[in-house]
Simulated scan of single mutants.
Amino acid sequence: MAKSKSKMKINENSKPTSINEEKRPKEIKGNIVVDFSNPFSLYSCAVKGIFTNYLKSRDNAFDNHQRIFTEALSYFSENNFDDMRNSKGTHTHEIKGNDKIELIKKILKELIICQNGNYKNADTIIKNLVADADLWQLGYPNGMRFIGARKGNIINLFFLDYHHLIYPNKNYNNKDFYTYKYCLMRNSKNELLELETASEIEALKIKEVITDTISTKNNI
C-alpha cells in the first residue's frame, strides 16, 4: 500500500508580507543600499490635495527614472546614512510624527491600488511595512526624495517623493503638481496591454481572411 502524503500545515497566524523575504538584500554595515523589492515602489499616485508623485509627461518620467538608476544610486553607494544625515542640504533624516506616518500609510494604500488594482490585503501589507519600522527620507541633492524603512545601511523603498511634498519647501513647491497624471509604470503597462490586444485583433483578422480564402477555393 502506498504511503499517504502528509499535508503541510499552514500557520494562519503568520504575518503575510508584501515581498519575498529571500529577495531582500542582507543587512550589512556600510554605504547606502536602496531595496526596490516592493512591487509598487516605482509607481505614482495621489492623495487628494496632500500629495502626488505623478510626473508631467513620458519624457519627464524617463528623465527621472534615468537619474535614479544612473546618478542617485551611484551617489548613495558612496555615502552612508550618518554622513548624509549630518551633511547640510541632503534632506536625509528620520520621519517622525503621527501626521507624517499617517500620510505615508495613505500613500502606500493608493500605490497598492495603482499597482494591483484593488485594496486586497492592503491594510495588512501596510501594517507589516510600517509597524515598528524606522522610517526615513533619503534625499538626493537637488532632486527627488526616497521614502522608506531603514534597516542598517539598507532602505526598503516605499515610493519616490519627486516634488518634495512629504516635507514641503516653500521655495520649491510653487508648481501645480496636482495637474500631473503620468505614471511610467502604469502607463507603460497599459500601452503594452493595448499592443497585445491590437496584435490579437490583427491575428484574428488574418485568420478570418485565410479561412475565407480556403472556403472560397473549396467552393469553386
Rank of each mutant, 00 (worst) to 15 (best):
P39S: 05
G89E: 02
I28T: 15
I32E: 09
F76K: 02
N79S: 08
S41A: 13
S18V: 09
D99P: 01
D83R: 12
V130L: 12
L108Q: 04
N20H: 09
N171C: 01
V47R: 04
L73Y: 03
T213W: 05
S37W: 00
K181G: 03
A46I: 01
K217T: 07
E196G: 00
K207P: 06
T17N: 14
N173G: 07
I112R: 06
Y140H: 07
N173Q: 10
F158D: 03
E202C: 04
Q115E: 11
L195F: 11
K217P: 08
E208L: 10
A2C: 08
I126Y: 12
G97L: 00
F69T: 14
M84A: 13
N11Y: 08
N156Q: 13
N121P: 02
N53R: 12
T124G: 10
I154Q: 06
G139V: 00
I126E: 08
A133Q: 10
D35P: 04
R186S: 14
A2D: 04
I101Y: 01
I220G: 15
I112C: 08
I210K: 14
T179S: 15
K120C: 01
F36S: 01
S74T: 13
I155E: 03
I19M: 05
N53A: 12
I10V: 11
N190Q: 15
K23G: 06
N116W: 06
N31M: 04
F81S: 10
G148W: 03
K181Q: 10
K217E: 14
I166A: 07
I166T: 06
S215M: 11
N79M: 12
E200V: 03
L160D: 00
V209Y: 05
